[in-house]
Design a protein around this nucleic acid. Structure first.
Lengths: 256, 256
DNA sequence: CGCTCGTTTGAGTTTGCTCAACGTTAGTGG
DNA sequence: CCACTAACGTTGAGCAAACTCAAACGAGCG
């Protein structure tokens, strides 16, 4: 516990220019002197905790957020008083871009575990962006990246069956961890099975069964929330193009 | 045929400032004199025809497109040499925003029927945007709207069953037609059943059966591609919140 | 006219959901 | 510190929504 707090204090103190996540974050592509201007805007509040809400669906867009340590999920209100999990955010990933220009948040952001999160007030950010073309470009870039990530999700939900979905989810997490310098083969899931099932459009039981199956097949080693990827190649193959496996569910077409 | 061509010539000749779609299109929110600057960029080529490709996945982003008459679909390459239909575009709707900032198209755009389409060269557009904040804002707005539309799709694919999906699709189309001044209750589907099924993540047969069922239930009148909505209220209720209908498939959760 | 493509309908199969019961973890209060 | 409880996770059995396969029909086109 005490050890953890030390880590947080340190990560909170880190300035953008020294932050290992800078290139993937808002400062990406900015000149050093420009980063300092951006830096001045960033608020680094105390750590957030599991269940904390960064913002709610419908609220005016006061700030954007970037995960520094920990993780966050975003949800949209579903039809049946149920929320749909739309995304998980890991260190270095910006949250709240979907609300830009509507000037209010389209989703609700919930912190999944004790996390350090940078807060960037929105209006000052856009004002700075008008004077810094590189920042403008980075905003476009991040927005467009979010769009493409969602397209991937559309593909997953529209075309893939259960095993492919979970495999895709795990390889995606693995890659994102790896890109941030963390272990790509061994990590802790900060979200519950419920969140995963909700995100992937499956039942909780299906997720549970798949974890068991993947472990039995020697793909993973699962201990509660601790995941160890034993055969990333097979996992990736399972997630994407089922080359060897039985090609099920072909319901699309090329031309009209 | 001849009659159609006349219509096209006229619609092509229309300048942005006289275009009925202007407010929903790029000029939205711009001052009249600024619209003229934008206007100067727009290329209005000859009509496109069914099957024509506006751009392909991976190509450098040379221009954005806006449907003036007709319709377009966008697809992403799936895993099994299959394409996933990601969206349909009706008059007034901009195409290609997903490629902004990556500077190359993330999707392939195929024309569904004979269509008039405005082409706006990308570089000049962004240059103009740096001098016109209102245009900048409109670009953000359109980008963000696309993002939210995709979120709706995620909800559809993740939570809804077959009948809800088709009902959602039809009410969405209806609203979009209505917003453009066209009939919201009677319209022609320019896309094939295949495209619809692909888009909605269902099998073609399911779509076909659902059309039959909706007609039998008195919701629609279906003749080939001609759709007439007889009971839009019931359709909307079916599409969104199944209040009365059996609440099936509850697999999500609020908190983590 | 005959071809192909798109659509419809039927029959059977299967994936993944539902319901249910049980085991485990973590958080709370005595 | 431990008992208790609620939330989370796992596992099994049965079912049904939607898929696959198959076949027939109509429309559009060369």
């Amino acid at each position: 516990m005490t050890h953890r707090k030390v880590i947080f204090f340190e990560s909170i103190r880190i300035a953008c220019k020294n932050c290992s996540l800078a290139s993937a974050c808002l400062p990406g592509g900015l000149a050093p002197e420009d980063v300092e201007q951006l830096e001045a805007l960033v608020e680094r509040s105390r750590p957030f905790h599991r269940g904390d809400v960064l913002f709610r669906h419908g609220e005016p867009l006061r700030a954007l957020y970037v995960v520094k340590t920990g993780s966050v999920k975003t949800c949209a209100p579903g039809m049946n008083a149920e929320e749909q999990v739309l995304g998980f955010y890991l260190p270095g990933e910006p949250i709240g871009l979907g609300g830009i220009a509507q000037h209010c948040h389209s989703r609700t952001a919930r912190v999944l575990e004790t996390s350090a999160i940078c807060e960037i007030p929105y209006l000052p950010l856009t004002q700075l962006a008008t004077t810094l073309p590189a920042l403008q470009r980075q905003l476009y870039h991040l927005l467009s990246r979010e769009l493409n990530q969602q397209s991937e999700m559309l593909l997953l939900l529209g075309r893939k069956h259960a095993a492919e979905r979970l495999a895709t989810f795990l390889t995606d997490l693995s890659q994102r961890f790896g890109r941030r310098g963390l272990s790509a083969t061994e990590f802790t899931l900060s979200m519950s099975r419920h969140d995963i099932s909700n995100y992937l459009g499956l039942a909780v039981e299906t997720i549970s069964r798949l974890f068991s199956r993947f472990q039995a097949d020697g793909l993973l080693q699962v201990d509660r929330k601790q995941i160890k990827i034993l055969n990333s190649v097979a996992l990736k193959r399972l997630s994407g193009a089922p080359v060897t496996p039985p090609p099920r569910r072909h319901r699309s077409h090329q031309q009209s």
